[in-house]
Simulated assay, not measured.
Amino acid sequence: MFTGIVEGQGTILGVRSAGQARVLTVAADFDLDGTRLGDSIAVNGACLTVTSLRSGRFTADVSPETLSKTTFADARGGERVNLERAMRLSDRLDGHLVSGHIDGMGYLTLRETVANVLLLTFSVPRALTRFMIVKGSVAVDGLSLTINRCDDDSFQVSIIPHTAQVTTIGCKTVGDAFNIETDLIGKYVERFVSRGQEGAQDTARGIDMAFLAKSGFLDR
């Protein structure tokens, strides 16, 4: 589990094919002291497992499923990435709960500067915006960001100067692709509401007026 507060940046040193999967080699800009084999590191928001580690660099396997959902299908050597090691239960949660399981990709369609803030607008599939609300949270390339506005197929966020400086997002341009993870809690709530609690024989019906009346929420 992660927080969306990027720990630092890194550079992809190499991308190697392994059948239908890929192997990334990444050099971190910060000290990886305490990191061990098998640990999780979010690379541009995607949770990857450390498979080798030496001299400030690590390798990680990228599965076909992850390749299909993320920008890693087009990853190349020299590319800068955001890095965050997994949180401890004793850590402060400064961002929001981020699983590192990417839902899909978004594309930067508009970049504006208002005062000292970057306003970024992304286009995303409607399957993702169903889990977005104004003032809710979204992870973009691993950054925990607050949604300014959203509609059926796009959303907007604000980037303060500090975030633009210490992450890769400040250098991105219109047309660039990003890894998007929608709010974890929102996905569970939507799943619960859509299926309802009628038991194993009626899980597909969901919550309707009859269910609310039966459960005591409405006067009969």
Rank of each mutant, 00 (worst) to 15 (best):
D176M: 09
C171S: 13
A127Y: 01
V134P: 07
G170Y: 02
C150D: 00
F178I: 06
R191G: 13
A127Q: 12
C150T: 15
S144K: 05
A177Y: 02
K172C: 09
Q165N: 09
D151Q: 12
Q197V: 15
G175C: 05
K187C: 09
G142A: 07
I169G: 00
G196V: 11
A139R: 06
T173C: 08
L128E: 03
S137T: 13
Q201R: 07
K135G: 07
K187T: 09
K187F: 04
V134Y: 00
E190C: 08
S158D: 14
K135N: 15
R149A: 15
L143H: 10
R195W: 00
I169Q: 02
T146P: 05
T167D: 00
E190A: 14
I133Q: 03
D151E: 15
L184A: 11
D176E: 12
R195S: 11
G175K: 11
V140P: 04
G199A: 09
Q201H: 04
K187I: 06
T168Y: 01
C150G: 01
R191V: 07
L145M: 09
I180S: 06
T182S: 10
A139V: 08
S158I: 04
I159N: 06
T173N: 09
Q156V: 14
S154Q: 13
P161F: 00
V193K: 11
D152K: 11
D176P: 04
G175W: 00
R195T: 14
I169P: 00
R126L: 06
Q201C: 01
